[in-house]
């Protein structure tokens, strides 16, 4: 019995267990999900130990270079202080390491978002109305495309504008202009969600095809077809 056969058999059984959810939540489905979660967690722990802790935390401590050793001890101590978070009385000891983690992470993410997304995307939106060097047809097509994109962006943002004045009957009511913008924004948001749903459906459909293909191929192999 080869390892491929065993792998195929386990894959077939687990796939059927997952498909059993069609008849509702049941112990077989839960068995498969618990198994998946357990295996994933165990593999993640092993990967972190193998790829992170040993090469980046413990191996540098064996260095003979005092400078390297000092640089290795500092993160080791900071990591060790994080264990203090387990005890409420001395949890403050881990605050410094947590502050470094949160601060550096936030700074990196914010800097990247500003320089990599906000500014470049704003410039790209402006470039849509740069018609220099284009013939009339290209310019018209680009202008329409830019106008739709601009209208979608403004309308979608306008949909989340919830400031309103009070109507004579006391109910809050936006003025007619913002109501129209919000309605248009709702249309664009619906199209966006529809696009995202289509993408999720295609991804799930591909995964399902692969599973069915794997099962059928295994059965064919067993049957010798």
């Amino acid at each position: 019995m080869s390892i491929d056969f065993l792998a195929g058999l386990v894959g077939l059984i687990l796939t059927l267990l997952i498909f059993s959810y069609l008849i509702g939540d049941n112990p077989l489905f839960r068995l498969a999900t618990y198994l998946f979660i357990g295996v994933s967690s165990g593999y993640a722990a092993a990967a972190i130990w193998h790829y992170v802790l040993i090469p980046k935390l413990f191996n540098p401590l064996r260095s003979s270079d005092p400078t390297q050793l000092l640089l290795a001890v500092i993160p080791f101590i900071l990591c060790f202080t994080l264990f203090a978070k387990l005890l409420p009385r001395i949890s403050w000891i881990g605050n410094f390491a947590m502050a470094i983690l949160a601060g550096v992470g936030a700074a990196t993410a914010l800097g990247g978002a500003a320089l990599g997304t906000l500014i470049p995307q704003s410039l790209a939106a402006m470039d849509m109305f740069d018609l220099r060097g284009l013939d009339r047809a290209q310019a018209f097509a680009r202008l329409v495309q830019g106008a739709i994109m601009l209208a979608g962006t403004v309308a979608a943002l306008g949909y989340f504008q919830f400031s309103a004045s009070r109507a004579p009957d006391g109910t809050p009511k936006r003025n007619a202009f913002f109501e129209g913008v919000a309605w248009l924004g709702k249309v664009f948001i619906a199209i966006t969600f529809g696009t995202l749903f289509a993408g999720v459906y295609m991804a799930a459909l591909t995964a399902m095809i692969e599973r069915l293909s794997s099962m059928i191929n295994f059965i064919r192999q067993l049957a010798g077809i």
Binding site: P120, Q121, L196, M202, A203
Partner: peptide
């Protein structure tokens, strides 16, 4: 396919030089 719509703006702005989506 589910990530392609979110990455398409970066393709249009040429921050991503090429993409195969879905």
């Amino acid at each position: 396919a589910q990530a392609t719509p979110l990455l398409q703006p970066y393709v249009d702005s040429e921050q991503i030089n090429g993409m195969v989506g879905g």
